[in-house]
Design a protein around this nucleic acid. Structure first.
Lengths: 219, 219
DNA sequence: GTCTATAGCTTGATAGAC
DNA sequence: GTCTATCAAGCTATAGAC
């Protein structure tokens, strides 16, 4: 490997990290390549040289970490299956397998994971990026929807999908880091304390999901 | 009232409606005043004449409907209090008072309410707009957080705030209309069928919220 | 109140020297 | 692989005629 290539790889990483950070903090289309290149301490022309376009940059930023989380989640679910023996893993096990790998990475101290997360939450809210979001997350989603189906055999097909979206919604609302809960609770709660958030969210969604098997509840 | 003033008012409404629609469909900063003025069928200069700036336009678009929902929700909660007698309204009553007025407006056939909703969901995900979101929604939020506190006396202060955010997250995930559940369920579920969504979401969040009173659940 | 015209700026992207 | 210089296109906002 030539010295130039090594230097180029380093530049790529610096740009990817800066993009991750800027996109997590700002509002996507409001974040310019100039902002990103300045944060990276790199000339703006290099962004286009290495990534071709802004769109490709966003893709690379997200894809970089998506596969890793997916694999860890699938593995966690596999382990839960092993622990459960012949019966399928219950709701708590499925939810935990879904959230644990995520939580672990966020609280790892690597600020990149926190940025990736915020970015991804923001991304899922924008119709424009639905194709990218689907490419990144559909495999994981369908995998865990299947697991939820097995854990909640009495729930309807539709209910499982709705339940997955509610689970996602609760998590996204916390992970996006909008500052809203800090504002409402006047600092009592903070999304920076991921462990506290997880402690609350797991029982909430597990109880919610289990209720999907009941059909005798009127609105 | 002069004819000119009446015409000006009509233009204002046309612009507000178009802005509501464009902002609901697109990604906020990606939506230009040109897009909005073209959708409204008016000259772009009129947008600045009537609203002064893009920021003010966004404010007016949101504030236009925010007060109405707030009032309806407070009234619904008041009625629930009356029905409940001496005891405070239970979780189901509080959640229903929160969601019913919203649901009613969305399914009223007025497409403006649907646009307003999507727009608002999108807005809550962008840190940049936290001040506006707080101004619009904090009164409602704190009002219902108080009601939840009364309905869940054994839950901790923190849990109530978290629970409110989870409730919000589940609703936002559905209302934002990102097309994700349609994609995942291959058309089986759709956020256009608000009634179906509501039928699923109410029991989910009510069970989730009630679980906040329990403290014996390990992560 | 409305429209034309345009100022002044920022954007993403590229051509060419090194 | 990196940097300077610059492009065309888009944006918000405004000044002035009608």
């Amino acid at each position: 490997m030539r010295a130039g290539a090594r230097r180029g790889d380093a530049t790529r990483q610096v740009i990817l990290d800066a993009a991750e950070q800027c996109l997590a903090a700002g509002d996507f289309d409001g974040v310019s390549l100039r902002t990103i290149s300045e944060a990276a301490g790199v000339d703006i022309a290099l962004v286009n040289y290495h990534f071709g376009s802004k769109e490709s940059l966003v893709e690379e930023v997200t894809e970089r970490r998506a596969r890793d989380v997916h694999d860890a989640r699938v593995l966690a679910l596999e382990e839960a299956r092993h622990r459960a023996g012949t019966a399928p893993p219950d709701v708590d096990a499925v939810v935990t397998a879904f959230l644990e790998p995520w939580l672990k990475r966020i609280s790892s101290g690597d600020v990149g994971w926190q940025n990736y997360n915020r970015l991804l939450c923001r991304l899922t809210m924008m119709p424009k990026y639905l194709p990218l979001v689907s490419k990144l997350l559909d495999p994981t989603a369908l995998h865990f929807i299947n697991a939820l189906r097995a854990a909640l055999p009495k729930a309807s097909q539709e209910s499982i999908y709705w339940g997955y979206m509610f689970l996602l919604g609760a998590v996204v609302q916390i992970m996006a880091g909008t500052g809203r809960i800090e504002q409402l609770s006047r600092g009592l709660c903070t999304t920076d304390d991921i462990n506290a958030a997880m402690r609350e969210i797991v029982p909430f969604v597990c109880h919610g999901l289990r209720s999907l098997e009941r059909t005798d509840i009127a609105v």
